[in-house]
Simulated scan of single mutants.
Amino acid sequence: MQKIMIVEDDPKIAGLLQNHITRYGYDVILTRDFSKVLEEFREVQPDLVLLDVNLPSFDGYYWCRQIRNHSICPVLFISARSGEMDQIMALENGADDYITKPFDYGIMMAKIRSQLRRAYGEYAVRTEESVIEAAGLRLYPERLELMYNGRSIPLTRKECDIIGSLMERHPRVASREALLEKLWDDQNFVDENTLNVNITRVRKKFQELGLEDAVETVRGIGYRLHASWAEEDGR
């Protein structure tokens, strides 16, 4: 049974969420001590986290960063804050999605199931591990890991999906529409700016590998892997 951890300091909302999600066969854990969110996370090892923004001691952005230092499990923010900057901050701090209150339970469950499929659906038995290779890069989708020149970095599921699309299309352009379709089941729930935020995070990942200007913006069309390092190496 997959475990969902709810970090919500309003006991009424937390209880309603627990009751509803439990009906779908998930094991739901409610956080009680909001000063030890990471400690509880590491103990519970949930498959997905629902995280409020406004919390005692530290806000949800802080706890999302702490979780990201230890895990790449899906994190969905649930918040009454509906401003664009709030959603951008959530994504910048490692969230996979953002649900505003009051939320529709049907949409919420669809987003939860979608994130769980993307994070764990690929863990079916395989005869061999899949790998995507391009321009000296090696991407392991099941591991959520990107390698270059003997170095490796962990990725979130969305970062992995974007990088995979760029590598598969290299040296062609991956359109914005194709990337949105790859990342989300229903584009009606997606703000165009959300893709921009995730592209920024992908660029930072390449920089961690020492690869600058790795993602080129093709105005009006989409993005392309600009593998200047491969040209220098003759790859």
Rank of each mutant, 00 (worst) to 15 (best):
V202P: 02
Y140P: 00
N93K: 08
I221R: 14
E133P: 02
L211A: 10
E133C: 10
Q187L: 12
M5C: 03
I4T: 06
E177M: 03
R219Q: 10
V218D: 05
D9A: 08
P11W: 04
Q45P: 00
G136K: 13
Y98R: 01
S71V: 06
I199K: 08
I99Y: 01
N93F: 06
A95L: 03
M109Y: 11
R117K: 14
A124S: 11
T31N: 14
I67A: 05
Y148W: 15
K182W: 01
G164H: 03
G222N: 00
R151C: 01
E168D: 11
W63V: 05
E181A: 13
P141T: 01
A80L: 04
T127I: 10
D185Q: 04
A80Q: 10
I4V: 10
I78Q: 07
I6W: 08
V173I: 14
I132Q: 08
K36P: 01
V131L: 12
S35C: 11
Q187F: 00
N196Q: 11
E208T: 08
Y223F: 15
P46G: 09
I88D: 02
R68T: 04
F189I: 12
K101T: 13
Q66P: 03
S35W: 08
A80I: 10
S130C: 05
Q66M: 13
C73Y: 02
A124Q: 10
C160Y: 03
L116R: 04
E39Q: 15
I199P: 01
D213H: 08
W184P: 00
Y105E: 14
E128L: 05
A14C: 12
I67G: 09
T100S: 13
A134M: 07
L183R: 01
F34T: 07
D10S: 13
E128D: 07
K182R: 15
Y24V: 02
I153H: 02
R126M: 07
E145S: 06
E40Y: 04
F103W: 13
L137T: 04
A135H: 09
K12L: 14
E142V: 08
G60H: 04
Y105S: 14
Q87F: 08
R201S: 11
V44A: 08
S130Q: 15
R118K: 14
H70M: 01
P141L: 07
A110D: 13
T200D: 13
A230C: 10
F41A: 04
D233T: 07
E43K: 15
E145H: 01
R143W: 02
P102Y: 09
R113I: 03
L91W: 03
E39W: 07
Q87E: 14
Y120K: 13
A124E: 11
D59L: 05
L17K: 04
I72Y: 09
E122R: 11
G83I: 01
